[in-house]
Amino acid sequence: MIRPEILLLVLGMTLVTYLPRLIPFVFLKADRIPERWRSLLGHIPHAALGALLIPGCINGVAGNPVASVAGIAAAGLVLWFKPNILLAMVAAVVAALSFIEG
């Protein structure tokens, strides 16, 4: 069952989310972007990841900053030696679990 007002809400949210996603694809030609701008754009993902990690990762395990930091630290340790995200995920969950009570 999908209520009409929820459908309206989802369609409205879809529109305002999709348009910013679409516009650069339509109006941008990769080989026409100047070198300087390309280098700037290259830094954007690193900045975005930094901002997503700090301060968010403190709340990876909701309401438990100690478990969150333990998990992220374990993942960081694994990733430093081996660039294997899935392995780091296992390490992080095991480390976080050992700091969650109950």
Binding site: L52, L53, N64, L97
Partner: peptide, 25 residues
């Protein structure tokens, strides 16, 4: 189990770190 459910929340951030780390190195 709610304990596991809570721990899995860390995965999103592990993914971010996993993307960033090879670039940092």
């Amino acid at each position: 189990p709610s304990k596991l459910q809570a721990a899995l929340g860390i995965l999103l951030y592990v993914m971010f770190l996993g993307i960033l780390m090879p670039q940092v190195r």
